[in-house]
C-alpha cells in the first residue's frame, strides 16, 4: 500500500482530568490497551499521555487506511495498538525548539508500535515531548523513506494552522528535496494530494495540526 498517516497532539490543549475519567478513555482504549498500560515500561508515561499517545497512533492509522478505503469509519477502540515498545532510558523532554524535521526515526528516541485494524496490520513511530505527541504510521516496519516535520506556531486559528502546515511541508520539498511547481490540494474524500504542475505526484502526504503545533509526513518510496 502506498500511503502514510500522521497525527499531532498538543499536550497543552488536553484536558488532563477528563482524560483520566473512564467514560472518556473507554471511548478511545480497548480493554487490551488498558492492560497494556500496566506493563512496567509505562511507568515513565503518565496515563493521560498514554491515552493521547494511543489516540495519535489510531488517528494516524485511520489516515493511512482512509487513502485506501474511503468508506472506512474511525472507531478508536477498533484500531487496537497490540504492541508498544519504549526506548531504553526513555524520558519525556522539552520540545525546546521552534521546529524539527527528519527522515526515519533513526536516533532511537521514537516509540515503536504495532496496530491491528481488522485484517490490517500497521506500524507506528511516535515522539513524545512535554508539549506534544507526534505519531506516524506505515504498513512497513521500515520508516527510512518517511520524512516528517514538527513546528510550533503562534496561531490556533484552523485556517492559519492549515496554511502553515502546507507551507512547512512545501518548504521541505522545495528547499531540501528540489521539488518545483508543487501544490497541495485535498481530494473529494478530504485526503491531501501533492501535485506537481497540477498532476498528482503519487507521493503520499499527511498533515496534522492541534492547538499551536503542526506536523507533516510524506513517504518517498517503499524500500522493500
Amino acid at each position: 500500500m502506498i500511503s502514510t498517516g500522521n497525527d499531532i497532539i498538543s499536550l497543552n490543549a488536553i484536558n488532563v482530568a477528563r482524560t483520566k475519567q473512564p467514560r472518556f478513555y473507554s471511548k478511545i482504549l480497548s480493554g487490551n490497551e488498558r492492560s497494556l498500560y500496566d506493563e512496567p515500561q509505562f511507568t515513565a508515561i503518565p496515563f493521560e499521555i498514554f491515552v493521547w499517545l494511543l489516540w495519535s497512533i489510531k488517528e494516524s492509522a485511520y489516515k493511512f487506511l482512509k487513502r485506501i478505503d474511503q468508506k472506512l469509519i474511525f472507531t478508536p477502540v477498533k484500531f487496537e495498538v497490540t504492541q508498544l515498545e519504549i526506548p531504553a532510558g526513555f524520558s519525556i523532554i522539552n520540545f525546546g525548539q521552534h521546529e524539527t524535521e527528519g527522515i526515519d526515526f533513526a536516533d532511537g528516541s521514537a516509540l515503536k508500535g504495532t496496530i491491528a485494524i481488522g485484517t490490517y496490520k500497521l506500524y507506528s513511530r511516535s515522539l513524545i515531548y512535554k508539549q506534544l505527541i507526534l505519531s506516524v504510521v506505515d504498513d512497513n516496519k521500515n520508516f527510512d523513506t518517511t520524512c516528517w516535520g514538527i513546528k510550533s506556531i503562534s496561531s490556533t486559528a484552523p485556517d492559519t494552522q492549515s496554511a502553515a502546515v502546507r507551507g512547512f511541508l512545501l518548504n521541505r520539498l522545495q528547499n531540501a528535496l528540489g521539488f518545483k511547481d508543487i501544490t497541495i490540494n485535498k481530494n473529494p474524500d478530504g485526503i491531501p494530494v501533492l501535485l506537481q504542475a497540477s498532476k498528482d505526484t503519487g507521493i503520499p502526504v499527511s498533515l496534522s495540526h492541534h492547538d499551536c503545533v503542526i506536523a507533516y509526513c510524506f513517504k518517498l518510496a517503499n524500500q522493500d
Binding site: I14, R18, T75, P76, D159, H210
Partner: peptide, 29 residues
C-alpha cells in the same frame, strides 16, 4: 473546523446534555 481530538469531548458532553450513553460504535457515525 473542529479538531478530531475534540470529538470524544463532544460525545461526552452530548451524553451529559441529553442524559444518554453513546458507544463509540455508534459515535463513529
Amino acid at each position: 473546523k473542529i479538531n478530531s481530538a475534540n470529538l470524544v469531548d463532544i460525545i461526552i458532553d452530548a451524553e451529559a446534555q441529553y442524559n444518554i450513553e453513546i458507544d463509540y460504535d455508534v459515535a463513529d457515525k
